[in-house]
C-alpha cells in the first residue's frame, strides 16, 4: 500500500509541477523540504527511541557496522564499471555516475559540472530511478532475502526518504543501521565522484 501511495504522490507532484499552479500550501511544502525532512527524522527518531534494548544490539555489531556501506559502495562501483563497458564510456565516468548511490541532486549537479550536461543528466536520472525504485524493491527484498539487504538499493538515501519504507518492512535495528549507512554513503558520494573522474 505504501508503495502505491508513494507512486501516487510522485505522479501528483509531477502533475503539479507541470501545471505551473502555485497553491500556497503546496508551494510552501515543496520549497521547505528541509523542514519536512527534519520532521521525518524526528519522527523516525521517536520510533527508534521507543524500541527497548536496540543500542545494546547495535554495539554488538562493532566494526561489522561498515559491512553494509562497504557492500553498497563496492556493488555500485562495479556496476558503474560494467555500464561503462556496455556504453563504451571511460571507466572512471561510469563509476562516477554509479557513485551517486541514489543521491540524484548532488550526483547530477556535480557530474554536470565535471563531465558535461549529458553525463550529468544520466547521473541525475539513474540516481533518481534508484531512489524511486527503492520504494518498490525494499518490500520485495525484505521478503525474499533479509532485512539488512533492504538497505542496499536505497544506498545514500537510506538515512532519509527511503527510511519510512525501511521502518514499515523491516525492524528498528535495521532502521538504525540504515541511518548509519546513509550517513557513511553520503559522506563518500562526493569523494568517490571526484576520485572516479580523476581515474582514466
Amino acid at each position: 500500500m505504501i508503495v502505491l501511495f508513494t507512486i501516487l504522490a510522485l505522479l501528483l507532484g509531477l502533475a503539479y509541477g507541470l501545471s505551473g499552479l502555485e497553491l500556497p500550501l503546496l508551494t510552501f511544502f515543496s520549497q521547505h523540504t528541509d523542514l519536512v525532512l527534519y520532521l521525518l527524522m524526528f519522527s523516525v527518531g521517536i520510533s527508534v527511541g521507543m524500541h527497548r534494548g536496540l543500542f545494546r544490539k547495535i554495539r554488538e555489531y562493532h566494526i561489522r557496522i561498515f559491512i553494509i556501506p562497504f557492500g553498497i559502495i563496492l556493488g555500485s562501483l562495479v556496476g558503474g564499471l560494467v555500464c561503462a563497458a556496455i556504453f563504451h564510456l571511460p571507466l572512471g565516468q561510469g563509476a562516477a555516475i554509479a557513485s551517486g548511490m541514489g543521491w540524484y541532486s548532488l550526483a547530477g549537479a556535480t557530474i554536470s559540472q565535471i563531465g558535461g550536461s549529458e553525463l550529468g543528466s544520466v547521473a541525475f536520472l539513474s540516481n533518481l530511478m534508484r531512489e524511486i525504485f527503492s520504494f518498490i524493491i525494499i518490500p520485495i527484498v525484505a521478503i525474499k532475502l533479509n532485512y539488512y539487504t533492504c538497505i542496499a538499493p536505497a544506498g545514500a538515501t537510506s538515512e532519509d526518504t527511503t527510511l519510512p519504507v525501511m521502518l514499515k518492512y523491516t525492524n528498528e535495528e535495521t532502521v538504525v543501521l540504515s541511518v548509519l549507512n546513509g550517513i557513511i554513503c553520503s559522506f563518500f558520494v562526493p569523494i568517490l565522484i571526484s576520485l572516479c573522474f580523476t581515474t582514466p
Partner: peptide, 30 residues
Amino acid sequence: QSFLFFLIPTVLSIVVVYILTKRFMKHPNQ
C-alpha cells in the same frame, strides 16, 4: 542508458550486501 546505470549498480549492491550480511552478520528476528 540511465535505467541500466540504475539497474546494474543497484542489483550488484544487493547481491554483494546479501552475500556479506549472510556471511558476517547475525540475522534480525524477522
